[in-house]
Amino acid sequence: MASINPANHGLRLAVRYAVLSIIAVVFLFPLVFMIMSSFKPDLQLLQDTGSLRAFLPVGDLSFENYREAFERAPVWTFVKNSIIVTGLTVALSLFFCSLAAFSFAFLNWHGRDTVLAVILATLIVPFETIAIPLLLLVSKLPWLGMDGIEWGWLNTYRVQIIPWVADGLTIFLFVQYFKDLPHELVEAARVEGASWWQIYSRVVMPLAGPVLATAAILKFLVMYNQYLWPLIVVQEESYRPVMVGLQYFFQLNTAWGEVMAYLTLITVPVLIFYLALQRAFIASIASTGVKG
């Protein structure tokens, strides 16, 4: 067996770090460009795009684009709406999809595999193909409100949340993870007389941290980036999310600095959310082999 040559090891390490650095730069440059551009006036921003200056905090820097972005659009309303819709959808999705997955992984019932196969088959159906039928459906659905029964869900938070709570990918992630858990744990709990709900809530879910993080991040990204669905079901500004709000900045003469300022503002929640859960996310991806 050949011994490790310290010189070779150092070289290999240097190459590895060089490659990783290049990849990091490729991924970071768009973010750096966005943030730097958000502080520059339009003309300078456009002129800088042809050189490395685009990535540097040089020239006439100010918060003017941010001030103008807030004047152009109700930015905080859009951010608030996206956080409400995304937060509630993620929470409900984790609960209901994990419950469904628990049933698929641990309970024996007639037709279980067929139902799971049908759910997984929905993964290949693009949302665009069901958008119009879904629109027609939600525009006629009833809702029990403070003033009695209302018809139609348009222009509400619920129309942006409820259709997205359950989805095939999240259920699949939970099923895969649950199947890898030692079934002896569940059997032991059954022998001890635990109910299925107790097993779900006290045995399985406490062990599901990594898959919860993964599912939460993937769902968060899907929901935070929603565009088509809110575009067609929300006509009132007070319910619009951030991605529809982005359109406010594309006028006949686009104010690119304001676009970058707005994008910077709406990217912050995503980065915070991802950074908070990234360790568990990576652990889950590594363990399940699932790529988002």
């Binding site: 119009i132 629109l135 027609l136 525009s139 139609g152 348009l154 575009l231 067609i232 079901v233 006509q235 009132e236 500004e237 529809v244 709000g245 359109q247 406010y248 594309f250 006028q251």
Partner: peptide, 21 residues
Amino acid sequence: IESFPQLSYNDSVVAAALAGN
């Protein structure tokens, strides 16, 4: 009045027409 961003205005109107809104 309810204002829409110009780029997505037509899509919003067509969707609203389908939904009878």
